[in-house]
């Protein structure tokens, strides 16, 4: 147990762990880097030497040029940004209000409401697509970003309420009681406690963001028009239209991946904290 044998065993074990994790990381990064790298090469080099990085002779950004000439990627990006931002604000804010009500007040329907709202965590909203499409068509909301925002808000609220009500329930009562004695209204108290759960708000936003940003289903069905295409749908349609032009295809893939990766880097702290806090019960 003592001495060099143990140390050698430890070194061996740790290098084994690193080797496994390195190998898996390589498997993860390979396809992403491959696509990204080849998007900067000319058609000949893409097919001739797919594994070689671009050289001055093979370097080309024609794919990106086609992309900007034909498809309106800036516009798709803006749509995705609007839909995601507004949905997240609504999910977090309305979720906090409802979560607060469920955690703070005792009323007759409390348990019923909690269960009713939690149903949405277990049942995927897609199964109501037929109803959603008819509702949106009746209200003339098809092909508007509003339709997407409403659906994503409804989709994100159950989890948001669930997580936030747990956080609100953990707040120490002294603070709230002190405020109440000072004669603060319930609304005022809510604005006072909201900053206390800020990390939780960030977590909810980070967790809710991925499915909203990456969704293909609802943009495809509810808002497929050129004006309202999100970046994922835009990329999907573009990929379908330019199957022959690999430079453009690889450029489109890269360009659609980059915003997601940037967002991830920006929010990874909240996201990982959210996941590792056991938030998804």
């Amino acid at each position: 147990m003592t001495g060099s044998r143990y140390r050698w065993f430890r070194v061996f074990k740790i290098s084994g762990i690193h080797a496994t994790l390195l190998a898996y990381s390589a498997l993860v990064l390979f396809p992403i880097l491959l696509v990204f790298m080849n998007s900067f090469k000319d058609q000949m080099a893409i097919f001739g030497e797919p594994l070689a990085p671009p050289t001055p002779e093979t370097f080309s950004v024609d794919g990106y040029k086609t992309l900007f000439e034909i498809a309106n990627f800036q516009h798709y990006f803006l749509n995705s940004l609007i839909v995601t931002t507004v949905s997240l604000v609504l999910i977090v804010f309305l979720g906090a209000m409802a979560g607060w009500a469920l955690a703070e007040y005792e009323f007759k329907l409390n348990t019923f409401m909690a269960i009713y709202l939690a149903l949405g965590i277990m049942v995927p909203i897609r199964l109501g697509t037929v109803g959603i499409l008819r509702l949106m068509a009746d209200w003339h909301l098809v092909n508007t970003l509003t339709a997407l925002i409403l659906v994503y808000t409804a989709m994100g609220l159950p989890l948001s309420i669930f997580i936030l009500s747990r956080f609100f329930a953990q707040l120490p009562p002294d603070f709230k009681d002190a405020a109440r004695i000072d004669g603060a209204s319930e609304y005022r108290i809510f604005t006072l406690v909201l900053p206390l759960v800020r990390p939780a708000l960030g977590t909810v936003a980070a967790i809710s963001m991925i499915p909203v940003w990456n969704d293909l289903w609802f943009p495809l069905i509810l808002a497929p028009s050129e004006k309202t295409k999100t970046i994922v749908l835009g990329a999907q349609v573009f990929l379908g239209q330019f199957l022959n032009d690999w430079q453009a295809v690889l450029a489109a893939l890269s360009l659609a991946m980059i915003p997601a990766i940037l967002l991830y880097m920006l929010f990874s702290k909240q996201l990982i904290r959210g996941l590792t806090a056991g938030a998804v019960k």
Binding site: L117, I125, G131
Partner: peptide
């Protein structure tokens, strides 16, 4: 506090599902 969330959730999740 509850109404906005319950309203959106009912209208765009529960109602379409039942419909």
């Amino acid at each position: 506090f509850l109404a906005p969330a319950v309203l959106i959730y009912t209208l765009f999740m529960i109602y379409p599902m039942l419909a």
